[in-house]
Design a protein around this nucleic acid. Structure first.
Lengths: 209, 209, 209, 209
DNA sequence: GATGAATGAGCGTTCATTCAT
DNA sequence: TATGAATGAACGCTCATTCAT
């Protein structure tokens, strides 16, 4: 039992350290990119030794993968909750997106991770597939279903979002990408732009015919 | 005159080889990313020796920069032409974008280069600034002016595109990014999606008020 | 305390390895010259891996510089000691030089390093300036002062060594250089030559008028 | 005969170009050292193409060797002339050396080449042997013979220069080396120093006993 | 477990040398 | 003969990974 107890404490500590590595990695990757980040950069940020990382992850790439993976778990759970109650009035989806982006995405780690995914995951088909399977596809299906229902009910005057639900978040992708590239020279008011875009979409979907 | 002729041929050959290096680099970078592409990968693709690249470019990064630069020259020229005659009816801008994307962007080297820019240029502030100054900013101003005029004339019922002209191309960014990440697992009909998005925008802008 | 102990041992080991790298470098440089010595040559001689050198020195040139630097520290300290008691009878300086060259220079690492300095440091103005400032200039001033006093007291019949104290060691330079170039074909009895030269100087300085 | 004539002119041109390469090489080597001088540096200085050098020399090292070789031919011839009339009064040798150094060595290409020899030839045993055989040894023997005769006649009160004739030029070696290393920080009046040294030697040798 | 010294494969870049023109 | 573009071996340096303590 002492053993168990110690073990329990150990587990907790282990989890805490693992998190601190992931956090350090997130900061380092965000700052310099996957390729240019040295394991030591991460170790220093996490306040541990280089070798210690290997007690938690088998390789640098694995750190990156786990970073993405762990960042995707929570949103997915949240999404599941929403999906259980998918009967919200169709127009509400725009408001929901707008609030979620503003309150739970922009300026949070999630945005940073999304930035990382957009710029690095292209070289990691497996991680891309994971992101798609776990997050992107379910989310798109969620949006599609709402759009589908709205279209069937006549709330939406177009099946555009049924066919391409990702259009609903195109401005989010744009916002992330723009600031990744041009923050220094022409920073973008991401929030306003996304809201504006959602307004336009809403207006476009509303229109009869 | 023989001299001149030889020189002319030499120049032509030089240009040809330079192009073949840029092409090889484009393919290699597109496939493996800037960091993971070895100079030798490029050399092998171009059918030359590693050292030969240094007769044309001072460094690997310079190859990358020139790739971006050379890809930006033509679009910019085209843009200038269009900008000289900016009086096209506002709604035509959507049609113009749609055709340009379909005919001169998707499936061409430009798309590949755009993909590269989106994923790599975040680490090269100078190249980002160059892209912005030479292409992105002028293009956005071009769109903004059209939107402005249309808004003033009442052709557009919203100043959304005056404030955020980049929204007009958000679906293009999305299309590029999507296929970069998810081509394998869920390829996207980029053309249809972009057209659908432009339709939605057109519809939204048209709406009175 | 265990910590302290480990640390102490670590420091000692670090110093020992650093010395072994410097020794390996000395041998390698002496044999092949700075330019022709590969980092790996040094590593192999030191029985370590190439990369290990970079844990102790930031670059190949830094190894070279440290080699020179460390060789200059001790002689300088010794020189300082002597300079604190500069009242030795003037003629004694020749005896002192003779013994120092024989006992503490010829056949030691110092000679090897001097050889290196003479043949390589011409391309490194900063190291040259360092050698001059730390060793050569003080030593020359030391000799000059003795000569000056001797000249004023009438012990020296010439101010030659006041004006050019370096003449007192010209035969040392010659001895080093000769054996560097001609050891194989006509080895030189450095010791005898230097002693002979010092005798000549002594005799020349002694002569009245 | 036309053939011969053309050939003769060709030979002349060939010799001229060879000389221009050697001169360019001398300047380049003197400035940057053998290792750091690129073939192209020499070519540019000589106003020819890199490949052309290979029509005259089989390798970079061969250029260096020929440089040394060709610089040694003339002094050797001069030396031979002197050696044919070796009966000059012994004391005159110091004056002769003094004048030769001042008028035909310091500030001429010969000094530059000597500098090169002193710093680079240590790595080229064959060139060292050549220098020794062709120039250094004969010159030393020449000095030795004069010293020998002077000693036998009682003109010299010491056999020092019989045993170590190179001492007569030790200050020349010192002068070259000093300015190679310390020209920037403490330039040396080579001429005065050498003259001073020769005076000292003369005085020392004169002394009875 | 934690450390960080050690490793060595890997790559960008240079440049002596070659060779087609 | 002269050229200079092309070659590719060589080397300094980096850094992910290992392992003795």
């Amino acid at each position: 039992m002492a053993q168990e107890f110690r073990s329990a404490r150990s587990d907790e500590e282990r989890r805490a350290r693992l998190q601190s590595i992931l956090r350090a990695a997130l900061e380092a990757f965000a700052e310099k990119g996957l390729g240019a980040t040295r394991l030591e950069d991460i170790a220093i940020r996490a306040g541990i030794a280089k070798g210690t990382i290997y007690l938690y992850f088998p390789s640098k790439q694995a750190v990156f993968e786990e970073l993405i993976r762990s960042a995707i778990v929570l949103p997915v759970d949240m999404l599941r909750t929403k999906m259980l109650a998918p009967d919200l009035p169709a127009q509400a989806v725009f408001g929901f997106l707008s609030h979620w982006v503003r309150d739970e995405f922009l300026g949070t780690d999630r945005e940073t991770i999304a930035r990382l995914v957009l710029s690095e995951v292209g070289r990691f088909p497996e991680i891309a597939a994971f992101c798609h399977r776990e997050l992107v596809h379910p989310a798109m299906e969620f949006l599609r279903e709402i759009a589908q229902r709205a279209y069937e009910r006549g709330e939406f005057g177009s099946d555009a979002l049924v066919r391409f639900p990702q259009l609903a978040v195109s401005s989010v992708i744009l916002a992330i990408t723009w600031n990744d590239l041009f923050q220094e020279v022409e920073p973008l008011d991401q929030e306003s732009m996304i809201e504006t875009h959602l307004d336009l979409l809403q207006r476009a979907m509303r229109s009869s015919r």
